[in-house]
Design a protein around this nucleic acid. Structure first.
Length: 602
RNA sequence: GGGGUGGUAGUUCAGUUGGUUAGAACGCCGGCCUGUCACGCCGGAGGUCGCGGGUUCGAGCCCCGUCCACCCCGCCA
């Protein structure tokens, strides 16, 4: 080994000893006589001193040292002279007096400075990710991610799970996200798909009798990006046989306990809160509520129907809803501030935002449509006090809930209702089995097509006739009443995972495909191997997949999963470091029997 | 596909009503400096104002288009 100590581990106990350390020059302070250098490696920073009276040669050489030069230093650990200690770093009581300096490599002037509080643009940071990742903050994130996967593996290994790999070159499936496709050279005109998740394979593993499977695995979805969505992302994927919902949820609760203990040294309280999908939507407007604060939505239909406010009445007559939220203490909001909030809800399709300020009475352009008694009831319902701002949205259920859920989160932040370092888990259960897709005019699986309906809904499902569209629509309410054996896990307002108990009987799976409008032939083509496997003694099974990137993002307190991924992509799914994707040689394309039909800017 | 914000020195930004030579800080280069740790002091270099077009006597600034980045909607079982 070139070195025998890490920079960050040097302390008072090493005083008087010789040490070899290596690392990068974090900063230099050249006094002409004495030269100080902060040397950094993964473990931390230690001050190195060059004194011409101790080693004139090293001192001379040290003049040319610049930031991020790579050095090997041999020297003596010394207590710093009294009064020159630096309490702001862990090694601040000591320093290394250089007796031998070796410059292992030089470094050009940097495109941006390497410091935790960098203000460099993100694109630049990603382009030079190797420099960005030298920042202790990013290193901390990467290390924390490692600790998380280590805790996961420890826990699952102890619980008889087997880590099993599944194919990356796999089959395109019709449901779900857009696939990334890989052309097959050996099979002209045929394509693999990169897996959106190992869903089918993990079910096959259960049918194979392997009982408990897990994998920390890359998944791929060719959809547009967000702060918490990358085209390739990592799941903690697991599946178990002979279990019901409760078993999977308990297992994950225990796993989270281990993660929090190992990674954050925190005790989690279990079981986590359980909310039905309906309750989550009713109270918070979303199936991923942030439970660190209350600020709940209130349904005010019954109250506002006693008004002459046509906007509300129209919505109600069309079967829409009206809900409100109380922005505590915001009665002082200006016209512009309310306009900005209105703009915010318009992105969800809301046509407007009704407001009432509580200021020694009711102040609002709409009060004239409301009898005094009705206003009083509204205020009571929203527990309004003097100084509050009441906000209402009237529209379809979806628009109202989406809009107010956003406002709720916004006010959670603005009103400082959210404590950092607080973690609120919840399980969301009792999801509808099906969801109407208005674009395709058909029902879709809310979770995925392999999710089992509730036991008591199976008979209902089987008895229904889906062959004709009219009956289909006539039975609308029946379909939406069907519940899935699915569960999502939510942490601080982020969906960090979801799973279900799967269908393990062929006839039920067949029926599901029928409901989803997937023809017998298509089902055979796309999922035939699973369907067939179901015929050969498929055990009851279920599982879950957790988004590792999102989980680690929350554990590190970051706002984007890009900060917890070593090599993330930009919003256009470009890797600024490698410049992928790129055009390829004509020859490569030809070998794949593919023709490009696109204008390409080189 | 849509909405929003941004793009000026290596970096982060400022740049007035369209008007002379486009500034600051940090970084970089040279010099001085033996207790600094945001070292200090003196001096210096550094610009295709994202790109293309237009309006104008004159554009970093106004208009049109385009590219890129970030946030959001759609989309993401």
């Amino acid at each position: 080994m070139m070195r025998d100590k890490w920079c960050g581990e040097i302390n008072e106990s090493h005083v008087g000893l010789n040490a070899s350390i290596a690392g990068w020059v974090n900063s230099r302070r050249d006094h002409g006589g004495l030269i100080f250098i902060d040397l950094r490696d993964r473990s931390g920073i230690v001050q190195v001193v060059f004194n011409p009276e101790i080693d004139a040669k090293a001192h001379e050489l040290a003049h040319k040292i610049r930031n991020e030069y790579v050095l090997l230093i041999k020297g003596e650990v010394r207590k710093r002279p009294s009064g020159t200690e630096n309490p702001s770093i862990p090694t601040g009581g000591v320093e290394v007096i250089t007796k031998e300096l070796k410059i292992l490599n030089e470094c050009k002037p940097l495109p941006f400075m390497i410091e935790d509080e960098t203000d460099a643009g993100e694109f630049l940071r990603l382009k030079h990710r190797y420099l960005d990742m030298r920042r202790p903050l990013i290193q901390r994130n990467i290390i924390l991610r490692h600790k998380t996967t280590k805790a996961v593996r420890n826990y699952l290994n102890l619980n008889e799970f087997l880590e099993i790999e599944t194919p990356v070159l796999t089959k395109s499936t019709p449901e779900g996200a857009r696939d990334y496709l890989v052309p097959s050279r050996l099979n002209p005109g045929h394509f693999y798909a990169l897996p959106q998740s190992p869903q089918l394979f993990k079910q096959i593993l259960m049918i194979s009798g392997l009982e408990r499977y897990y994998q920390i695995v890359k998944c791929f979805r060719d959809e547009d990006l967000r702060a918490d969505r990358q085209p390739e992302f990592t799941q903690i994927d697991l599946e178990m046989s002979f279990v019901v919902e409760e078993d999977v949820m308990r297992l994950i609760e225990e796993m989270m306990k281990c993660i929090f203990k190992d990674v954050l040294e925190q005790e989690l309280i279990t079981p986590f809160i359980r909310l039905s999908y309906k309750e989550a939507i009713d109270r918070f407007g979303t199936d991923k509520p942030d439970l660190r604060f209350s600020l709940e939505l209130e349904d005010v239909r019954d109250i506002v129907k006693n008004s002459s406010f046509q906007v509300f009445l129209d919505v109600l007559s069309k079967g829409g809803i009206v809900k409100g939220i109380n922005a505590k203490g915001c009665a002082g909001y200006s016209r512009k501030e309310i306009d900005d909030l209105t703009q915010e809800v318009k992105t969800f399709g809301a046509k407007g935002l009704a407001w009432i300020k509580i200021k020694n009475g009711f102040e609002s352009p709409i009060t004239k449509f409301f009898p005094a008694e009705t206003l009083k009831k509204l205020a009571d319902k929203l527990e309004a006090e003097d100084g509050d701002l009441l906000l209402f949205v009237a529209d379809t259920e979806k628009v109202v809930n989406d809009s107010l859920a956003r406002l709720r989160n916004e006010f959670g932040k603005r009103l400082n209702l959210i404590k950092d370092s607080e973690y609120k888990f919840a399980w969301i259960t009792d999801f509808p089995l099906l969801e109407w897709n208005d674009e395709e005019k058909r029902y879709e699986a809310m979770h995925h097509p392999f999710t089992s309906p509730r036991e008591e809904d199976i008979e209902k499902l089987l008895s229904l006739d889906f062959s004709n569209l009219e009956l289909f629509t006539a039975h609308c309410s029946l379909f939406t009443a069907l519940k899935a054996r699915a569960y999502d896990i939510v942490l601080n307002g982020h969906e960090i995972g979801g799973g279900s108990i799967r269908i393990n009987r062929r006839y039920i799976q067949n029926k599901m495909f029928e409901v989803l409008g997937i023809s017998h032939r298509e089902a055979e083509e796309k999922f035939g191997f699973l369907l067939e496997a179901l015929d050969y003694g498929a055990p009851p099974h279920g599982g879950i997949a957790l988004g590792l990137d999102r989980l680690v993002m929350i554990l590190t307190g970051e706002n984007s999963i890009r900060d917890v991924i070593a090599f993330p992509k930009t919003q256009k799914a470009v890797c600024p470091l490698s410049n992928a994707p790129s055009i390829v040689d004509e020859k490569q394309i030809k070998e794949l029997n593919i023709k490009i039909d696109a204008k390409i800017d080189e």
